[in-house]
């Protein structure tokens, strides 16, 4: 028995603890792409708001489904946000599947299902809470609430995947809290959190784990 054997044992223990709890095929590139989509979405959102100011359209949350599309900035923004979400999910799935194939791992494992469950639980609660904010027309709190709950969801899910996700979550949650003191600048905080943070942490994950 030598030191090498003990070191080997410790390494083996750590590797198995990680492999059996964490889903490590999550792709960093998909984080970068999600950030890019969010930035594009923010720019479109900016133009929608600018256009609404110029033409004198008010926010139309209370008459979301009655107002015609062209005069309905609220509906336009919701559709853009949903588009960003949809593109991000599809991209994440495609990139993660190809990374898993490269490492000869499956995508649907106990680890990935646990990861999704622990991510979706706080996120779904946050989504319902955000809808309630819309219901009461508390529009200034919508972006902060999205950032805070998304951040908490990431922090909760991080223990089941690459550790970098925890810092992404923390950054988004803090940005959301700061945003509560700068109501009306939601779009900029939204772009910083969902755009820049995803690109930065996605790049960190890409360089640390993808290559």
């Amino acid at each position: 028995m030598t030191n090498d054997k003990y070191l080997e044992d410790i390494k083996e223990i750590k590797s198995l603890m990680n492999k059996s709890t964490r889903f490590i095929s999550l792709s960093g590139m998909s984080g970068i792409m999600a950030g890019v989509y969010a930035l594009i979405g923010s720019v479109i959102g900016h133009f929608i708001i600018q256009n609404a100011y110029e033409k004198g359209y008010r926010d139309t949350v209370n008459t979301l489904f009655e107002t015609p599309w062209a005069q309905n900035p609220s509906l336009q923004i919701i559709v853009v946000a949903a588009g960003v979400l949809l593109f991000s999910i599809v991209t994440a799935f495609i990139f993660t599947r190809s990374k898993a194939r490269k490492h000869k791992q499956k995508v649907w494992t106990k680890q990935s299902i646990r990861l999704i469950g622990n991510f979706m639980a706080p996120l779904s609660i946050g989504a319902i809470f955000t809808l309630v904010l819309l219901q009461y027309n508390l529009l200034g709190l919508v972006a902060p609430a999205m950032l805070v709950f998304y951040g908490l969801a990431c922090m909760n899910a991080a223990q089941f995947t690459l550790g970098t996700v925890k810092y992404l979550g923390l950054s988004c949650a803090i940005l959301g809290l700061i945003n509560t003191q700068f109501i009306g600048y939601g779009l900029y905080f939204w772009a910083a959190g969902f755009g820049l943070c995803h690109i930065i942490y996605g790049a960190v994950m890409y360089y640390k784990y993808d290559r």
Binding site: D9, E12, I13, L16, M17, S20, T21
Partner: peptide, 13 residues
């Protein structure tokens, strides 16, 4: 190695 492995998996799951 195998007993070590079994325990490693079971203490975190």
């Amino acid at each position: 190695r195998i007993r070590l492995g079994i325990m490693s998996v079971l203490v975190v799951n």
